[in-house]
Amino acid sequence: MNYRKLHFFFALSHLFFSVEPFTPAERYSHTSALVENKLYFLGGDGEFYSNEVFYLDLSQQFYAEYPSWTDLTANSGMSIKSSWAAAALTINDNNPTVYLVGGIMYNQNNEDSFTSLVYAFIPKSGQWNKPVIKGTEPARRRQFQIAADDFGNIYVFGGGADKYVGSQNLQVFNDMAILNTADLTWSYGPIVNAPSPRGGHSATLISNGVIVYIGG
């Protein structure tokens, strides 16, 4: 091996070994969705508001201390910085879609940048869109969880509104908005005997079709 080739080899080796894996910054108020064997994480707040999209491949073994993250932000980052939103997976026509609902929505200057209550992420293409939804849209809100059934319905219950989501007054909700993702329409469920207004709760759809709300 001549000196020129040797120098080129060392240069490539240095370049290769200097590349570090993606490590997400510490954060809270992000949301996540499991799509097949990939656990996607969206947005969040920490030292900064985030538009990041990254996932952990659960089909591969990994050490909990050093998980192998895959960052999609360069090509599939959100057009907004998102925190305190909720996410749910639906599958219509064999096409998995992650719906991101509500939350704080900021632009690059960390200013309120609300243009749509709902964003849709298509994992197969890595693309985002703002679906056009018919019906009466629920009020903007944050700090809630959503549940999706096998028919493509997403159930939005509770949450709170304040200046960070464009509300002049502090509000806490106990309405039930239902997004039908098959035909993209909003409807509303009954509120008779509904839990008290709340935010920060969990929402879990169990096998008998009942959604269990805990805490808040």
Rank of each mutant, 00 (worst) to 15 (best):
G209H: 10
K5Q: 12
V98N: 12
R198L: 02
S76V: 08
Y63R: 11
G200A: 01
S207R: 13
S83P: 05
L56M: 03
E26K: 05
Y99Q: 00
G158C: 04
D112A: 00
H14M: 11
N37Y: 07
T115Y: 11
Y213W: 09
Q145T: 12
Q61I: 03
V101K: 06
T97Q: 08
L170T: 15
A120M: 06
I80R: 09
A74I: 14
Y106A: 00
S50I: 07
S202M: 09
N208P: 02
F157L: 07
G215K: 10
L117V: 02
Y155Q: 12
W69H: 12
F144Y: 06
G166H: 10
A74K: 10
G44F: 05
L117Q: 06
F114E: 06
P138M: 02
T73K: 08
V212M: 04
S116R: 11
P67N: 07
Y99L: 01
N180R: 07
V172F: 13
G209F: 13
L12R: 10
I104L: 09
G152Y: 04
T31F: 07
T23W: 11
T181C: 06
S79R: 15
E20V: 05
V165N: 15
A177R: 10
Y40H: 01
S59H: 15
V156R: 02
L15W: 15
P195A: 05
F9T: 14
D150R: 12
L42Q: 11
G135C: 00
Y188W: 05
I91P: 14
S82Y: 00
T115Q: 14
